[in-house]
Design a protein around this nucleic acid. Structure first.
Lengths: 112, 112
DNA sequence: GGTAAACTGAACCATATGGTTCAGTATTGC
DNA sequence: GCAATACTGAACCATATGGTTCAGTTTACC
């Protein structure tokens, strides 16, 4: 099996934070510098830089420094694996529910 | 707006760990005691207890103690909000892509 | 050439996380 | 009643997280 788990860990933990989810939505509207993002989320440059770093490590954001400003944009990661994991989990829940239904059906048949 | 963000934080951070995702899949097959889970994941009882606590706080697992054994089962949380967040993010990416396409289309028309 | 802007890195801080051990407590079964 | 089982709680540990300040460095602009 490929090393999907590290990717899942990174992305899920990147998403487990208000500020970072906010930054993603903000970058959805328009690219932004660190300064802009720090302003929008009322945080120091250094603090925002760290969040951006986390998002970049998770592949959710790419940055490019030209001159003295670093521009942040949404990355290539589309959260397909994360979506797939959740979908598979839900399918499992469904299957369990079906088995329960089935069980109740058979039990009812036997009891009555 | 309702306080969805705390739920998202809890669930995403609960999912950002191999062991915990493993426990969820394990519990999908069959309910289990803390001892069983600790054995399956080669961890102390106390360690596993903490993971189960995190999952329980996120609503992904419910536990019930009868006699001296605490049985763990999958909870009621179906990750719909998390799935929705991801879907909305992907929709945003799509929309951006469409706008880009549109832009390129218009630019090409003007340039050629 | 000098000042301001934008970022960066190191250091620090408080708290959280993921694990352990150890010392209980409560239940079970002989 | 006693030993073993199953869990629990406190304490501890190392490292990570989310933030700060402060002291640079680089770039832009008058």
């Amino acid at each position: 099996m490929v090393q999907f788990t590290g990717q899942l860990n990174n992305a899920f933990s990147a998403l487990a934070d208000d500020t970072r989810r906010g930054v993603l939505q903000r970058l959805g509207k328009r690219e932004a510098s660190i300064t802009e993002l720090a302003g929008d989320f009322d945080m120091t440059l250094t603090g925002m830089k760290k969040h951006v770093q986390v998002l970049e490590d998770a592949g959710l954001v790419v940055t490019e420094k030209v001159g003295r400003v670093r521009t942040c944009r949404l990355g290539t990661r589309k959260l397909h694996e994360e979506q797939a994991w959740i979908a598979q989990y839900q399918a499992m829940l469904e299957a369990r529910y079906d088995r329960l239904e089935d069980f109740l059906e058979r039990t009812r048949g036997g009891d009555e």
